[in-house]
Design a binder for these strands. Structure first.
Lengths: 237, 237, 237, 237
DNA sequence: GATGAATGAGTCTTCATTCAT
DNA sequence: GATGAATGAAGACTCATTCAT
């Protein structure tokens, strides 16, 4: 019933708009920053250049972020959200271990081909405050354990050959993370093609003979986009 | 009567000693530096701290290196020498493509577990001068092509299943490079165990059925240590 | 109703003020710097001291100049502008060669008695970047050729005795440049007196008998102050 | 008595040789240093480069000089000796004021065309220790006063037109000192030609009509070389 | 007498960050 | 919300000078 006319210029609307505008700018900063950080490396990139690319001035950045490190962390967080999203989706899906692993590899590979995704593996946690660094390391551990968990699940349900989940996870994660270093948008390989290729390539060695029948071309979860961050972006105070 | 034997190599000996002492110090600097750079990252690490750990003063470092970047590059170069060494050895060995690939994976994995080896993948070429960066990038390309070459050889000689050498090389190199990020000396896994494991794990998916018989436990080249740098260390003038 | 007059140039005014304030500060820096550089020499003078005298901190200088060398060059440029200014004025005047030469000597002598003028001969072009050094050397050559040109003109129009313009120019320029080394504000000799004296002294030997009649006490151009730098000061980007 | 055979390799002879060899090296250092200092400027020139050009090492220089500044001062001193020498000669000569002035100009011009001579006007006394700087400034004052003295003498003896000796001296000295800045060995003008030209040019304006008859082509003192420094070079302790 | 090595002092420069407007 | 100006902290690098050999 809160029947507010569409053209209501109420202060609230204004407030809403403000918040939205603010969030858009925040994201614009992050998009610019992540790109610059990837391009030049966090230390060589200066806030001045971030600001320049946005046609604003350096201190203006401080309206949206508390520090350079804050920006770095938020970039990372956006990437991590993607990962959290598809992991949640896969966790909730009905597949055997091998299927989940394949889905994970596929989604992770796709993410690695995005700026925020690549930031997950190309940013250095040591550039973060101890507290943020802790968060990052916990998340990294979480990803690793998800890999191991799916592998263990697969071994248990017979879709994956008995093996050491730890080493297998390392090997797979390494291949995937590496994508973040070599993938270039506009290159000969599309993110999708890479994801498809790696989903098969990195898991075929693990699959039991019986599972190794023609698998579905695309994992079911493929289109599920990551569950976004809870609500309004926290101000990371 | 000042009883010095005619063959007394005195001045020369002194000279020799000096040179040796100098080289030893140079290497000590590099060992300390690579460790610190890996620990803290190149930008956070200061020459002051490098010097402190060596119980000398910062300017003393400039007796051996021309700049911080020079040190960085030399660390990288030492790692690259190891790689060049075992690649040369494998190239000269009598094996089919699969065997060479396995040997390469094994040696590369071992190298990744060393400080100088890890520096190959954890240092950022953008921290180097354009000229040095070029060298580094060329070397990286060389390694990639070696992987692809062995795979292609294997396909040609029937030891490796037909596949895309490029993607296969990326997948393998990624797993290996990742070692440089997670391996910790003193951890539960020895470098040797990792190398053995990866040599098998990363190649089994590529092997043709016929090659996949009980392979030798250790690649033939395993004991061949990398051909070291010619003789006298260049003074990085 | 916020009763601001329509023609309120407020934001613009502010902007204008800012720019002016900025330019004023820039010039204050240059005035302080040129003085310090003359006092102590470029190498002994530190930016810290420049800043101290201005009651600001060293990095604040970098808001106005890109480097110490930039400051040096701009000091020189201010002096050169004076010279360019009076040369242009003399060039445009209606006088015979001797008259122009006298006017030049007079103005140049006056300039040598100023800080920025003295910087023309007391700063060392080798302290400048190659590009700036080139500019400086070209300007120096230009001044030399102006001297020679006026002498040649005088010879042609009969006001100056036939002689070697090159040597004559060297002799005159030497006397004048030397002023930049010995003149001290507040000393027994005023700049004006020196200029008058030198204008006569350095030219009387060159004048033909017929020109050597009672010359005007003051060269016509004497009051013409140097054409100042266009308008907005370049930002030395 | 002390009949020492010519071939006596006595310690004394050795000592003599040593001293001579030492002095030769000292002078070689100074010759190299003055050249380098003139080429690059005192501050940009490093002792390392001085040593390199001599094919010795930097610390070796400290066997002959106590500091970089000491070298600078000694270079200056060698130039000053030349000046002291010809001034003494001229002082002792039988000429009227004009003649002495001409002789002074001639010799001074010649000196300006030498490295050590140029160092007199191109080195900055502020680079010297207070004590040495004082010496230098006194010497400079002495030269100035010599110019003024000869002019005054000339006025007194009627060979020079009444004028202000101070200004005249400044004008003449400026022209001469300037030579030290522009003269280049191997250029189109020989030192001798310059000296002849300037001896006439800088004095003709001062000469009384009666003196201005054809003057001798070369001042009598021309060949008198400067009285050298007393004996063994002081170690400038 | 000469050298390699080491040092201490000092300077420029960069950049994230803050503040008054 | 945005800006120009200013700052403090920090680091790389240079070089004259000394010392043990």
């Amino acid at each position: 019933m809160d029947g507010r006319p569409a053209n209501d210029p109420s202060p609230w609307m204004t407030f809403e708009n403000r918040r939205r505008a603010r969030d858009e700018k925040r994201e614009a900063v992050l998009r610019t920053a992540v790109q610059l950080f990837l391009e030049q490396g966090y230390h060589r990139a200066t806030l001045n250049e971030v600001a320049e690319r946005l046609n604003i001035t350096k201190p203006a950045l401080y309206n949206y972020f508390r520090s350079k490190e804050d920006i770095l962390f938020e970039c990372w967080a956006l990437g991590q959200e993607q990962v959290d999203g598809f992991i949640a989706a896969i966790d909730g899906s009905q597949q055997n271990g091998l299927g989940k692993l394949r889905a994970l590899v596929h989604s992770y590979a796709e993410t690695m081909a995005t700026d925020f995704g690549a930031s997950l593996v190309r940013f250095d946690p040591r550039d973060l405050s101890p507290s943020n660094a802790k968060t990052v390391r916990a998340a990294k551990r979480g990803i690793d354990q998800t890999f191991r968990r799916y592998i263990a699940e697969g071994i248990a349900d017979g879709s994956i050959k008995p093996c050491d989940p730890k080493m297998a996870a390392f090997a797979i994660a390494g291949s995937l993370n590496w994508i973040g270093h070599w993938y270039q948008r506009g290159g000969p390989l599309t993110a999708d093609a890479i994801a498809d290729d790696f989903a098969e390539r990195l898991t075929e060695g693990l699959a039991t003979a019986r599972s190794n029948k023609p698998r579905p071309n695309k994992p079911a979860t493929k289109t599920k986009k990551s569950v976004v961050r809870a609500t309004t972006h926290r101000k990371t105070k």
